[in-house]
Computed example of a mutant assay.
Amino acid sequence: MDADRLPDTDPARLRRLVGERTADLQRVQAEYDNYRKRVRGDRAAVREIAAANVLGTLLPVLDAVERTCAHEPPTPGLADIADTLRTRLGALGLERLGQEGEPFDPGRHEALVHHVAPDAHELTCTKILRSGYRAGPLLLRPAAVEVTGPPPPGKHKAVDARRN
């Protein structure tokens, strides 16, 4: 404050100034809180994407280890490598997708073979050809599957029409 200015002693004016400064301070504090939340969310998203990128590059390694374990008797060293790899990737959020018998979901599965079963009511995964994976909400790779289900609607009618 200037030494030449007399302090303002009008109580109504002082209350109004205090109210304005308080509102300004609350607004700045709210903006800062929103900024911190946004930065925290951005950091989490970057961390999630970085983990997904690393996990995606390691999927061929995991596939190779799984194929080796499926086709050869696992030695203690190979079993240890496979278990460690699965554990560490799982700790980073990697989840396997696709199990035999579950309903087909085009958001999680990629149907490579379709077997028709006239008595089926829905498409069902009958064989997992290659596991799919996700990291949190991010789909890294859909599961490649064989499905069994009812005939496609258009093909069933066309077959009946040819028989008549």
Rank of each mutant, 00 (worst) to 15 (best):
Tyr32Leu: 14
Val61Ala: 12
Thr124Trp: 00
Gln99Asn: 15
His115Asp: 05
Gln29Asp: 11
Val65Asp: 00
Phe104Met: 01
Ser131Asp: 04
Leu92Lys: 00
Ala52His: 04
Thr87Ala: 03
Leu85Tyr: 02
Arg36Lys: 12
Phe104Gln: 04
Glu95Gln: 14
Leu25Val: 06
Arg130Ser: 15
Gln99Trp: 07
Pro118Ser: 11
Thr124Asp: 03
Arg134Glu: 08
Glu72Cys: 10
Asp33Glu: 11
Asp63Asn: 11
Thr84Lys: 09
Pro76Ile: 02
Leu92Phe: 05
Thr57Gly: 04
Gln29Gly: 02
Ala120Trp: 00
Gln99Pro: 05
Ala64Arg: 01
Gly93Trp: 07
Ala51Glu: 13
Arg134Thr: 13
Thr57Asn: 08
Ala79Arg: 15
Thr124Ser: 08
Thr57Ser: 07
Pro103Gln: 06
Leu112Ile: 13
Cys125Thr: 08
Asn34Cys: 06
Val116Asn: 02
Glu102Val: 04
His109Leu: 13
Pro74Asp: 13
Ala44Gln: 13
Asp24Leu: 14
Ala44His: 12
His121Pro: 01
Asp83Arg: 13
Asp83Thr: 10
Val28Arg: 06
Arg43Tyr: 09
Arg47Ser: 10
Pro73Gln: 06
Ser131Lys: 14
Arg86Tyr: 03
Leu139His: 03
Glu66Leu: 06
Phe104Tyr: 13
Ala135Val: 05
Leu139Thr: 09
Leu129Arg: 15
Thr87Trp: 12
Asp42Pro: 02
Thr124Phe: 02
Pro118Gly: 12
His114Gln: 02
Leu129Gly: 15
Val46His: 07
Pro74Leu: 13
Thr57Met: 05
His71Thr: 05
Gln29Cys: 10
Val61Arg: 08
Thr87Cys: 09
Phe104Val: 00
His71Lys: 09
Glu110Tyr: 02
Arg88Thr: 15
Asp33Gly: 08
Glu31Ile: 09
Lys127His: 07
Ile49Ala: 11
Pro106Lys: 00
Val46Lys: 08
Lys127Val: 09
Leu97Glu: 08
Thr126Leu: 04
Val54Phe: 10
Ala120Ser: 10
Leu78Glu: 04
Ala82His: 15
Leu92Cys: 02
Pro74Met: 00
Ala70Gly: 04
Ser131Gly: 08
Arg36His: 03
His71Val: 03
Ala52Met: 07
Leu78Pro: 00
Ala45His: 01
Asp119Leu: 10
Leu89Cys: 03
Asp83Pro: 11
Val113His: 02
Glu122Tyr: 10
Val39Ile: 11
Pro137Thr: 15
Pro76Phe: 01
Ile81Tyr: 09
Ala135Met: 14
Thr57His: 06
Thr57Cys: 04
Pro60Asp: 08
Glu72Ser: 15
Leu129Asp: 14
Gly101Gln: 01
Gln26Val: 09
Ala82Asp: 12
Leu129Trp: 01
His114Cys: 02
Val116Arg: 07
Cys69His: 03
Glu48His: 12
Pro103Cys: 04
Gly107His: 13
Glu100Pro: 03
Leu85Cys: 12
Val65Gln: 03
Gly41Lys: 12
Ala51Phe: 04
Val39Leu: 07
Ala51Met: 13
Thr84Glu: 14
Asp105Gln: 05
Arg47Leu: 13
Leu78Thr: 01
Ser131Ile: 01
Asp63Tyr: 07
Gly77Cys: 05
Phe104Cys: 04
Arg36Cys: 02
His121Cys: 09
Thr75His: 06
Glu31Asn: 11
Ala135Ile: 15
Gly132Gln: 02
Ala82Gly: 06
Leu112Ala: 14
Leu55Pro: 01
Pro103Ala: 14
Leu139Ile: 14
Ala111Glu: 08
Thr75Met: 03
